[in-house]
C-alpha cells in the first residue's frame, strides 16, 4: 500500500527523459532500501524477542508441532520469488507476456501462500488449545502458591509468538500482493513501455525480502521446536 505513496516527486528542471527516469528510479530505489531497512528492524526486534523468550523458557517451552503444509507454503513462496524474478527480467522489455504472466503468477502464488498459512494456523489450533490448558494450569498452581488471583487467560508463549510472528509476516505479504496486483494492472494497460521497469523491480525486491524473512522465521521456529 505504501508503494503507491513511494512515487517520487517530479524533480522538474529541463532534464531529458532518459536521465530523468534514471534519476527517479534511483530516488525510488533509495526509498525502497530505507523501507526495507525499517522493516528489517521491525522483524529483527520480533526475532530478538523470540530468542530471548525461547532461551528464558528453556525446557518449559511447549513443543510446537510445525504442520507439514508449512513446508509446502515455503515452497510456494520460494516459487513466487522465481516467477517474480522472471517478471522483473521481463519488465526490461516493456509490457511483455513474461512480465504480465510473471506478475500474475507471483500474485497468485502469494495468495496460495496466505491460504496455506491460514490452513497451518487452523491445523495448529488444537495443539494450541491443549497447550493453553496446560499453561492455565501452571498459572493457577502458581497463583495458589502465591495466594493470588489466577489470570483470566494464559496463552502459551511458544504459540503466542508463533502466531504473532507469522501473522506479522502474513500482513506484510498482503501488503505485497496489493501493489503486485497494481503493477500487473498497470502492465496490462501498457505501462512500462519504454521504461526500465523500476516500479516492477521495486515490488519484486520487496517480495524477495518477504521470502528471506520467512526463511529466517521458519528456521527459528524449526530449531526452537526441538
Amino acid at each position: 500500500m505504501m508503494f503507491a505513496a513511494l512515487v517520487p516527486t517530479d524533480p522538474g528542471g529541463g532534464s531529458d527523459g532518459d536521465s530523468e527516469s534514471r534519476r527517479r528510479g534511483s530516488i525510488g530505489a533509495l526509498g525502497m532500501v530505507l523501507l526495507l531497512a525499517s522493516l528489517s528492524v521491525l522483524f529483527a526486534s520480533g526475532i530478538a524477542l523470540f530468542i530471548v523468550v525461547r532461551l528464558a523458557d528453556g525446557d518449559a517451552w511447549d513443543p510446537l508441532p510445525l504442520p507439514k503444509s508449512i513446508w509446502i507454503a515455503t515452497g510456494v513462496l520460494l516459487a513466487s520469488s522465481t516467477t517474480g524474478m522472471a517478471a522483473a527480467f521481463g519488465a526490461k522489455r516493456g509490457p511483455s507476456a513474461v512480465l504480465i504472466g510473471g506478475l500474475l503468477l507471483t500474485a497468485l502464488l502469494g495468495c496460495v501462500f496466505l491460504a496455506l498459512q491460514w490452513q497451518n494456523w487452523q491445523e495448529l489450533y488444537p495443539h494450541f488449545q491443549k497447550a493453553e490448558e496446560r499453561a492455565m494450569e501452571r498459572a493457577r498452581a502458581l497463583a495458589v502458591e502465591m495466594n493470588l488471583e489466577p489470570p483470566l487467560r494464559a496463552i502459551p508463549r511458544a504459540f503466542g509468538i508463533f502466531y504473532m510472528l507469522t501473522a506479522l509476516h502474513a500482513a506484510h505479504v498482503i501488503a505485497g500482493v496489493v501493489p503486485l496486483l497494481w503493477v500487473t494492472v498497470r502492465a496490462m494497460l501498457g505501462a512500462y513501455r519504454g521504461t526500465t521497469g523500476d516500479g516492477v523491480r521495486r515490488v519484486i525486491v520487496y517480495w524477495h525480502f518477504l521470502d528471506v524473512m520467512w526463511l529466517i522465521l521458519l528456521g527459528l521456529l524449526a530449531i526452537s521446536a526441538t
Binding site: 520480533g46 524477542l49 528464558a56 518449559a60 499453561a135 494464559a154 496463552i155 509468538i161 504473532m164
Partner: peptide, 22 residues
C-alpha cells in the same frame, strides 16, 4: 513491536511481560 506485544498481552494474555505467565 513493543506496542504490538503490549496489546497482544493486554487483549489476549500472551505472557511476554507478565511473570505470572512466565
Amino acid at each position: 513491536i513493543t506496542l504490538l506485544l503490549l496489546l497482544a498481552e493486554r487483549l489476549l494474555g500472551i505472557g511476554f511481560f507478565d511473570s505470572e505467565l512466565g
